[in-house]
Design a protein around this nucleic acid. Sequence first.
DNA 1: CGCATTTGACCTCT
DNA 2: AGAGGTCAAATGCG
Length: 290
Amino acid sequence: MAARVNLVDGNGCIPQVVTELCHIKELVRQQEVHLDGSVPDLCKHLASQISSIADHSISMLSDASDDPIFKATMKRNKKRHELRVSNADLLAGDGHNWRMYGQKEILGAKHRRAYYRCTHWNSQGCKAVKQVQGTDEDPTFFNIVYIGEHTCVQGQRAAVAPGQAATDAQAPEYKYNANPGASSLLQSLSSSLTVEPEQQLQGWDAPAPFCFSTPAMASGCLMLESSPFSAPSRSKNWGVSSATSDSNHVASFPPFEVAGDDAFFRFDEADDYGFLDDPDSTSDVFSFLE
DNA sequence: CGCATTTGACCTCT
DNA sequence: AGAGGTCAAATGCG
């Protein structure tokens, strides 16, 4: 199974999560939170992921009203919902069938934007459309923009990533709520902290929350839960190197590689704030790899 | 042969 | 006028 980490703040308060993300991002930037240990790649990747996703999510929440596409879309009275997903999530699909109807080079973007329409747009007049574009900063992540709502009645099927054949893997659709920005934020975090099965460490037991703390906040916890999103079919190897299929070696491919048995991980502030001050608690970090 | 994808042209909007 | 979005013929694949 693939681990999925969902962000849960202490009070279930989304604005507080955003505030905490701002703190984390700033601390990482100022190197007040620095990471050490025998698995520096893991530490660096976690820090960089948190920082980049926080940056993206924060800007998404604050700038959406200035986005010309957003404005144009709102003019047409169509609901627009944006989120960032990993390639694994893209392959797992959003539960609907989509048919690509065009691709376009976008000015200033490294990757082309693909345009998808619900396969039932013709038969049932479903108006749902989505746009998929690889992010500039991380080619393994995609920005997905959903425009309009499904009016079709269909069986839930996995969507198809650009250039990929459909998979039989079934995945529940992404759950949206009345706060698309906040929902996207949480989904961005969740998808960015996905761990592929090959990257699991052996020997860790039941999942425990991976907690982080900064001086400016009480606490935030990345709670492991049974994923509402399914892992992609391994046979598709979406984004994975062409290593032999029976190999357990994962390519140098995000989220990260993990090696070594004596892993050690801590935030410097951990002692002051009561997290990860016990060598055994290093399992808190790695347990979410299960 | 049917369906999905690709791709260049055309349309719309700012 | 330029950029983004859509159309539709060509192409590929099962």
